[in-house]
């Protein structure tokens, strides 16, 4: 029953985000929103990726993330990308940048005061490094913290191992 409810919530979430993505691929998110997001995604393997436009390695990794999302979405996998750019610059910096560089990429944008507030939802001891990704198992627990650039093959191997 719990799993069915989770699947239903996930379906609703996917519909809502798909609608939102249709008009805006950069969605404001606060701590409560991230918690709700993760709760809705229980039952799926989730990769949460924290990135920023000023982090060059993060930008190098985005095509890989987009590839994973396409390739593994039918394997019970969801990608949650969260930009830690300053929310004040959303209109002038982040949106124009995404539109130009990654027109197919959908991400949340943290509207918290600082980066640590958002990452602490997942990892209270986050060490300030970007990109940082967290691989969440189906029960919502953090299976692994991944810092720096990872290849599509490395990500896929870890995701598929948790998807079994």
């Amino acid at each position: 029953m719990r799993r069915q409810l989770a699947a239903f919530a996930c379906t609703i979430w996917l519909c809502l985000t798909a609608t939102a993505h249709g008009t805006d691929r950069l969605i404001p998110l606060d701590v409560a929103g991230l918690r709700a997001e993760l709760s809705a995604l229980e039952g799926r393997v989730v990769l949460i990726n924290f990135w920023a436009t000023w982090c060059r390695p993060c930008l190098e990794e985005i095509p890989t993330l987009m590839q994973l999302q396409t390739k593994l979405q039918d394997n019970g996998f969801s990608l949650v990308a969260v930009s830690l750019d300053d929310a004040a610059s959303v209109e002038t910096r982040v949106k124009p940048f995404m539109n130009k560089q990654f027109p197919g990429f959908t991400s949340y944008l943290s509207i918290e005061r600082d980066m640590d507030s958002m990452t602490s939802v997942i990892d209270p001891a986050w060490n300030g490094i970007l990109p940082t990704s967290y691989l969440l198992a189906r029960d919502g627990s953090v299976a692994e913290r991944l810092q720096g650039i990872y290849s599509a093959e490395e990500f896929s191997e870890k995701i598929l191992a948790l998807s079994k």
Binding site: D86, A88, S89, E91, R113
Partner: peptide, 18 residues
Amino acid sequence: DRPPPKPHKHGEHSHRSW
């Protein structure tokens, strides 16, 4: 005013922070 997103007119010079 937090966060203070500012409207960005097309072609207008935009600062990278405020």
